[in-house]
Amino acid sequence: MLLIDCPHCGARDETEFACGGEAHIARPLAENTISDAEFAEYLFWRDNPKGVFLERWCHTAGCRRWFNAARDTVTHEFIEIYAMGSLPKSKAAKDAYASAWRRQTASEKAAKPAQKTSGKGAKS
């Protein structure tokens, strides 16, 4: 069972958390005129890398706050935990962010600039 360092409550068992999946998915606004296929990149497509993955977690049984984490999916090591709405600072996590296929998607390009680094779009 993972031990997850909630940025507010400290280290707690995995059972107190919910994993929200991939982070930094920019939400294209409804008025954007991207195609259905491009919209699907936002709605359905999720990355599943072997190695460093940027994902969102919520401390559901504690402070109920969401945060971002860079986790190695092979070793389960949490490389970095960082605030919602910010980008990671460690090199491995920054590389993971930059190299994610999503950075090149039409749906991300169609999102508001602010949403690309923050939010759910900012689901960051």
Partner: peptide, 13 residues
């Protein structure tokens, strides 16, 4: 409730 918190905290802070 957690769904709404998610939108508030992650999309529309």
């Amino acid at each position: 409730l957690s769904w709404m918190e998610e939108w508030l905290q992650t999309e529309w802070p």
